[in-house]
Every structure is written in C-alpha cells, then in structure tokens.
Design a binder for these strands. Structure first.
Lengths: 135, 135
DNA sequence: TTCCTTGCAAATCGTTTGCATAATG
DNA sequence: CATTATGCAAACGATTTGCAAGGAA
C-alpha cells in the first residue's frame, strides 16, 4: 500500500498542476507522452486513480461521461459549458455555509460536496453573438 | 421528434415516480420487467434518455460510474453514501441563493446546478456503531 | 530481495446503436 | 401511410485488470 516513487506518476502530477482546465485521462496521456513517450494509457489511469485515492488530486464527474482531473484540491465548484464542454473553476464563497447548513439538516455524516454548474460559457456566448451579427 | 405514446415509456415513467431512491437504468429494467416481461434493456435506456432530454425526469451523475434517474425535477440536491452507495434527497433552502450568487460571479450563462454531498448515511453509521458495541 | 510499478493487451461494464418489425397518429 | 418505438444483438468507449518484466527501498 505504501507508495514508491515513480517517474511516471511524478510527470503526471506535474503536468496536472500546470493545467487549470481539468483534463481527462486521455488528455493527460496525450500530453505526458511528449515528455515520456513510452508511458502507457493504463499507467496514466492507474496513477490518476492512485493520486485521487490519496487525496492529492480530485476526480471530477461533470456529467459528460468522462472523468476529469484537478490538481487543486481546495474546496471550490465547477462550471461545464453545454456547448463546448469546457470545464472551469467557479469561485463561490458560500460553499462552507452550504456544508454547515447541510450538516444541520441531515442525520448522516457529510464529508464532502461536489457542485457543478451548467450553462454556456462566455466564449460560446460571444461566438454565438458574432455569428448572429454576420448572419 | 414528436413523441408518440408507448406503453413501455409509460410503465418506466410510472415506476420511477413511485421511487425516491434514484434507481439506475438496470434497476428500472429489473423492476419494470415484472410488469412488462418482454421489455428490453435497450428500450429502458432509450426511454430514460428521452424523458431526461424532454426534462420530464432527471439524469443524475453522483460519481459511482452509473447514471441514476429521478422523477422529481424540482431543484434539490443529493447525498450519496460512500459505504452503501444509496442516493437520497437532501433538502436545502439556499440553492436558489447559490444560483444567484454564481450568476453574479460568472460571465457566462448559467442554466442549472448539480449538487451532490458525500459521506456516510445514518443507517451505515448505526450499523457501524452496533458492530463496535458487539465487537 | 521484497514489493511496488510498468507496459501491453485483453477484459469489463454501462450505455448506445443498427436493423427489421410492430405500434401509434 | 408516415413516423416513432420496440426487441435483439452487436458495437462502443471509458476504465480496469492480469501478467510477466523492470525499478525503487
């Protein structure tokens, strides 16, 4: 159960820390392969799962059928664009209050909270507006 | 695109409305089969997807790798037990405020919000306590 | 030397889809 | 009659896993 050092895991974690767009396992794989051409997709999955289990990264389920990963483990919520599928952070200062309130109204033990907003991102809105103007 | 009546879809929707535990497609299938023995799993999936697309039911992604379905389309959040996997409703009156606050802090268009708490449900807590007392 | 980790490929599993047939409007 | 829905089985795609070989403690 103890984790030994592995170059592959280090590369994966390092890569994830450079990104704020919450990449999928496959995106991680495609990128990490440039630095480590022999790495396998299975190893990427294994290490992402391992890191998530240890709490060093977050595994996000945003509803598009693919898992996304986030090196930022602080409590925050996410937004998913229904048009382009991008996943971004969304700052909200009422999250802790929400947890408190939930704990008061619920007679089990609440450990965490996943919040995910859906809609159209600013870029897609702008693109749509531009297209409407031209059309 | 227009929906014609289908007995199968009706049975599926009816069944879902009797349940508050947010069953998976397969659970819907197993149950609905007792009333309609020749229904196929594909038909269950097709109709659940159709109903969800029409907004008549909700498709939930709670992070266990399987989609859950909910006939209650009013805005509410969910709790998932990390031990037994049960999915329950969790009443919270600050959800609308949260949406408002998110809209103020975000320059895209937000249409909806999925919130899912994780932890240990009351039943599992009790079971654990009982086991500790005996052991 | 012991145990964790890797690469590879095959297996898993939830979900979707193609097709010929049946039911609805 | 036109269109949507069904059952069945095959296809799909993301993720996991078994195994023999390689690397860290």
């Amino acid at each position: 159960m103890a984790m030994k050092y592995s170059r592959q895991r280090q590369v994966i974690h390092n890569f994830l820390m450079t990104r704020k767009d919450h990449p999928t396992a496959d995106v991680v794989y495609q990128n990490v392969r440039q630095e480590d051409p022999h790495i396998s997709l299975g190893t990427v999955y294994r290490n992402l799962t391992l890191l998530a289990d240890k709490g060093e990264i977050l595994r996000l389920h945003v509803g598009d059928g693919v898992d996304h990963f986030d090196a930022d483990t602080s409590r925050h919520c996410h937004f998913v664009c229904s048009r382009c599928g991008c996943v971004t952070d969304l700052p909200l200062d009422c999250l802790e209050d929400m947890l408190l309130q939930a704990r008061q109204h619920f007679d089990g033990e609440i450990t965490s909270l996943d919040t995910c907003f859906h809609g159209i991102c600013a870029d897609c809105l702008n693109a749509a507006a531009k297209q409407a103007a031209h059309g």
